[in-house]
Amino acid sequence: MEERRFALKRIVPITFAYLFVGIAFGVMMSEAGYSPIWSLFAGIFIYAGSMQIVMVPLLVAGAPLYIIGIMTFLINARHLFYGIGFVEKFRKMGKKYPYMVLTLTDEVYSILCLNDYPDDVNEQKTDFYIALFCHLLWIFSCILGALIGEFIPFDMKGIEFSATAFFLVVCVNQWETYKTKIPAITGLMCAVVFLIILGPEKFLLPALSVSLFILILLKNKINLFIQKEGA
C-alpha cells in the first residue's frame, strides 16, 4: 500500500475529535470578535487543542503575556514526555526532523504508538504524512469553526469522546502486543493514585514523572522481556 493512503487510513480515528475541538476553538474566537485569520494563525503555529481553547478567554481578558506563557507550560507539559520514544526515529528524517518534533500532539503521538506498518510502506514517509495530514486537518477545523461554526446545525456534544476512545484502543493494542504489562500497570496505578490524592487539575505531571522514575528503576527487570520480544 502506498504511504499516503496508509497514513490517511491511520488518521481516520482521530478525525472527529480534531474537527470538533478545532471547530469549537474557531467558534469561540469568532464569538470573541477575532477575525478568522487569527484562528488560522493559531491553528498553524500553536497546534495544541486544549491550550488554544484555554487561550481564548485569556486573550479576551487581556491577561499578561507571562501568565499566558506559564499557563501554556502547565497545560502542555505532558508533551515533555512524548519525544523520548521518538528521538531515534525522528532524527534520521533529515529536513522533516523539526516538523516531526513540533507537530507531536497527543493524537499524533498515539497514532505513532500503534507502530505497525505493512511491509510495503516506508515507515518514515508514513510518519511524515501522518503528521502532515493531522496538522492540515487541524488547521482546516479551526478555520471552519471560525467561518461557519455557528451555523452547524448538529448537536455535537460528546463527539470529543472519540479521542478518548482512540487513546483507549491504543492502550488495548499495547496491552496485547507487549509481553510485559509492567509499564501499563505502572501508568495506571500512578494516574489513579495521584488523581485521588491531588485531584483532576494537578495529578498529570506527578503521575507522568513518577511513572518515568519507576520504569527507570525497573529497567533490568523489563529488559528481560525486551530480549524475549526481540524489540
Binding site: 479521542a163 487513546f167 492502550c171 499495547q174 494516574a191 520504569l215
Partner: peptide, 21 residues
C-alpha cells in the same frame, strides 16, 4: 536508558492520557 524508555514509556503514557481525558 533513552532507548529503553522509548520502549517502556509509551504504554504508561497512553494509560495516563486516558485517565487524563
Amino acid at each position: 536508558y533513552v532507548q529503553y524508555l522509548g520502549y517502556a514509556l509509551p504504554p504508561a503514557i497512553m494509560v495516563i492520557l486516558v485517565v487524563y481525558c
